[in-house]
Amino acid sequence: MKGGKDMKRIYDFEENDETYVIFFEETEVYTINKDNLKVDGTKFYETFFSEYSIGDSIELKKGNSVENGNKLSIAVYDTISKLLNEIIQKIDEEKED
């Protein structure tokens, strides 16, 4: 899962009965339990940023399993997607400094 020069990483956001699951190249890499909606920070870093290289981009695609009408699912997806984008933006800003 090593990053390369200006690599684009595409993750898929899916849900099942108990969890929200994020896949990378069809492999489950991150889960959020629907019971508590806990985002584990350490796991989050390791999944998305331990191999991240400056210049890479990340896209979190909303999968088919996510019910369009489910506001909570949408909120979870939006939160994670927003986090990823803002973190990348902040890293890029630091780079510019």
């Binding site: 870093y45 986090l83 973190i87 630091e94």
Partner: peptide
Amino acid sequence: TLETFEDNIVNLYLQSK
């Protein structure tokens, strides 16, 4: 809370480099 989380991830990332 979210912003602090973001900042901490960014700092950890930058530090990791």
